[in-house]
Design a protein around this nucleic acid. Structure first.
Lengths: 131, 131
DNA sequence: GGTAATTCTTCCAGTAACTGGAAGGTCAAG
DNA sequence: CTTGACCTTCCAGTTACTGGAAGAATTACC
């Protein structure tokens, strides 16, 4: 599969896909003509990268997450501990997104023109009533 | 409140806080000595930025979200529509995080050394069974 | 078969969002 | 009144892309 097709399937621009290859996140086969040739597995990884980058994980964290998957045959205890650390982070992110969600919902539902600058959303928007 | 204190409270490095000021995300008061002086409201905004950046929103999206809050007095229909768009995005992010969570949980629970490279996690890790 | 458009290649420069470090001013403690 | 922590600005470097040029390969059309 050429890069254009892989780009469509993964949601990542071709430029970004080539960049990910440059920094060693994946290395697709090459066809005889020199074109990159992406397998389904490559596309899965790209889609995974597209998602996890969009969720605020750094490229290095994504590299770890990919390694988790790729090294699962050995599944050593450190691999599991990384996974558990990431799971904690994911839970935190979900919690924070829920709070952001509630804040915006409140904004849409209750703050319609008659709110003063001291709206309680100001207090809740940061997730800390005190700070 | 000086920048060091605001940094502690918001979780953002002082460098980043100054950068956010440079690009016009907030403008704290200045004390007589020229030091930046952060209000509680400023710290709330910083904490909000810290969170939403970590959740994969771009600085420009964060600017919009902050504006949502700051312009809530007028609460025009476009403000609400932006909020609704962001709510959709937040829901998507939550869904994706849940899927990532399940994948990692599966990895920790079931893939312990006896998995072949064609582990079904490969299929599910990208969130698309087909692709 | 010819040729024009599309898609691919590499390379190099630019942007976004920080991040580190130098050079120097301010301030609280001893 | 000096030492050390914290602040200032400025400029350079890093990360993670992103755009564009120049050229080769494929596909689409006559």
């Amino acid at each position: 599969m050429n890069i254009g097709h892989a780009s469509e399937k993964s949601g990542l621009p071709a430029k970004t896909i080539r960049y990910y290859e440059d920094i060693g996140l994946l290395k697709p086969d090459r066809s005889d003509n020199g074109y990159r040739d992406y397998s389904m597995s490559d596309v899965h990884k790209l889609r995974f990268l597209q998602r996890s980058r969009g969720l605020g994980f750094s490229v290095e964290e994504c590299r770890q997450l990919l390694a988790l998957y790729e090294d699962k045959e050995r599944a050593s205890s450190d691999v599991k501990s990384i996974a558990r650390t990431k799971l904690k982070e994911i839970e935190r992110k979900i919690t924070e997104l829920r709070e952001l969600q509630h804040t915006l919902q409140h904004l849409v539902a209750h703050c319609h023109g008659d709110q003063r600058p001291d709206c309680p959303i100001l207090e809740s928007i940061s997730g800390t009533a005190d700070a």
